[in-house]
Amino acid sequence: MLARAAAGVLVSLLAVSALAGCSGVARSAGPQTIAGGASTGIYYAYSSGLAKQMRDAGFDIVAEETGGSVDNLKRVGRGEALLGFAQADTAADAVAGEGAFDSPLPITAVARVYDEYVQLVVPANSKATRVSDLAGLRVSVGEANSGVMVIADRVLSAAGVSEKSYERREFGLHGSVAALEQGEIDAFFWVGGVPTPGIETLSKTTPLRMIPIGPETVERMDLGRSSVYRVSDLPLGAYGTTGNVETMMVPNYLVTSSKVPDELVYEATKLLFESSAQISHTVPAVALLDRRQAIFTSPVPLHPGAQEYYVESRNAS
């Protein structure tokens, strides 16, 4: 069994690691970070809530706004962030050194926290009803180094929409919301929990509709990718929409580096679960955290410190 370090000891360990760079967690002294995402997205809200709970427990840690999954994984892999949120498909690429990653990163999972919906947003009066209808339109595919861009490119390719056939824009969530509201784009992709705060706010002033992503497209995307994608329906009535909208889901992981000490990850995992009820008051997606499902992070391995927490929790129940 791992030694149960007190919060003060963990903070000391964190500071020593930061100064020496021995754990790969950081290269300079100062607060650690949780790599979130856009300030109007669920990643950042979740990161902020978790960081507050960790500070209350004695950690010197803050949430940081980032470009999304790819950016988060690179920060964790370089030791610039203690924890980060990432989509399962992008995390799998990081472990394998594929896609946006030139070489494998030392990424391990803390937990599968919730499943995210792929949201393809258009104005309610748009003539586009299928992914293939995006040809000739102005489409935001997410910002560089984001998991949104990874998925958007794969969806468009699987649906037969070539990059030359539409006007490509690369905005984050905030930029996409603003551009759609101002009529500067015709559609945008987002991947996140429902409701996503930025889109929910937009829906109150601009009637929206979601373009479905069918099972054929999802099956093409899943080929050779560890079956991380699956077909689902958006929650009924999301953003004021009517009727069922078929789309796809991808799991979302909280990750850390394999170089982070086991005791540190054990305590972070414990706090993740112990604080979930409190954080869910302001971030509803946190209520989806399930200890029984959290261990299923394949092909990303669980960190040994997280494994120890799950084993201990199972034995105590």
Rank of each mutant, 00 (worst) to 15 (best):
V155H: 06
Q182S: 10
V194E: 05
L137P: 04
A158Y: 00
L236V: 08
D233L: 10
G192Q: 05
R169K: 10
L236F: 12
L173M: 14
K164S: 15
K127Y: 13
S203L: 08
P123G: 11
D186S: 07
V148L: 10
S232E: 07
I199H: 00
A158V: 06
V191G: 03
L202N: 02
A128K: 12
Y166I: 13
L236R: 11
N145H: 14
G224F: 00
I211P: 01
G214F: 11
A178I: 09
G172W: 01
R225P: 01
G193A: 10
T205D: 12
E181M: 06
S146R: 09
G198A: 13
D133T: 13
R225S: 03
G160H: 08
A187H: 02
L234Y: 04
V191R: 03
A152N: 03
A124Q: 14
K164F: 15
Y229H: 07
M210F: 08
L173R: 01
L234P: 02
V150Y: 01
L137V: 13
P197H: 07
S146M: 11
A135Y: 06
A152M: 09
V231C: 06
N125K: 15
M221I: 09
W190I: 07
R220A: 12
P235H: 08
L137C: 10
I185W: 00
G172Y: 02
A178Y: 02
S232Y: 06
D186K: 02
V131H: 01
L234R: 06
P212G: 11
R168G: 05
F171I: 04
G224N: 05
P123H: 15
V148F: 05
R138W: 04
S203C: 13
G224I: 01
V177H: 00
E200S: 09
S157D: 14
R168K: 15
I185H: 00
D153Y: 04
I185R: 00
E184T: 09
I151K: 02
V141M: 07
E143N: 14
R209C: 08
A124S: 15
S146N: 11
Q182I: 05
I185M: 02
G160M: 10
E216L: 11
H174R: 12
A179E: 07
M221T: 08
V194C: 13
G183C: 11
T196K: 03
A152Q: 03
G172C: 11
T201H: 03
W190Q: 04
S126Q: 12
V177C: 09
L208R: 00
F189G: 02
M210L: 14
T206H: 02
S227V: 05
G172I: 03
V161Q: 04
P215E: 13
A158F: 01
V150H: 00
R209Q: 14
R220V: 09
R220K: 14
P235L: 07
T201L: 03
G136T: 06
V141G: 01
G198D: 00
V231F: 08
S132E: 15
P235F: 05
V191T: 13
R168V: 15
L173P: 02
A159H: 07
E170A: 10
S157M: 11
G142V: 12
Q182P: 07
D133R: 10
V148Y: 03
N145Q: 15
A144M: 13
R169M: 09
E184C: 07
A159N: 10
H174N: 12
D186M: 07
S227F: 04
S162T: 14
G237N: 08
E181N: 08
T129G: 14
S203Q: 08
I213H: 02
